[in-house]
Simulated assay, not measured.
Amino acid sequence: MDESIRYLLEQLRPLAGLTARRMFGGYGLFCEGLMFALVADQQLYFKVDEQSVAAYRQRGLPAFRYLRRGVWVSLSYHLAPEELIDEPGALLPWAEAAVAAARRARGV
Rank of each mutant, 00 (worst) to 15 (best):
L91I: 04
G70S: 07
G26A: 03
W72D: 06
L75G: 13
V108P: 00
L67M: 13
G70A: 06
W94Y: 09
V53N: 08
F30M: 11
G28H: 06
M23Q: 15
E96R: 14
T19H: 09
D41Q: 14
L91N: 01
A100L: 13
Y45F: 15
A20T: 06
F30D: 03
A97W: 02
L9C: 12
E87L: 10
E3D: 15
S4E: 15
P14G: 05
R103P: 06
L91Y: 01
S74R: 11
A63C: 09
T19S: 15
R106G: 10
G26M: 04
W94E: 00
V48A: 04
K47Q: 12
A80Y: 03
Q58N: 12
Q11C: 13
V108D: 07
E32G: 10
P88M: 02
M23D: 13
Y27I: 00
A102T: 02
S4A: 15
G70C: 06
Q42H: 11
R104C: 08
Y7C: 09
L38C: 07
L18E: 07
F30S: 01
Q42D: 15
R21V: 07
D86I: 00
V99A: 00
G33I: 11
A16S: 14
Q42N: 13
G33A: 06
Q42A: 14
R21Q: 14
R106T: 07
L29W: 04
L67Q: 11
G17I: 08
F30V: 01
L38M: 15
L84R: 02
M23Y: 08
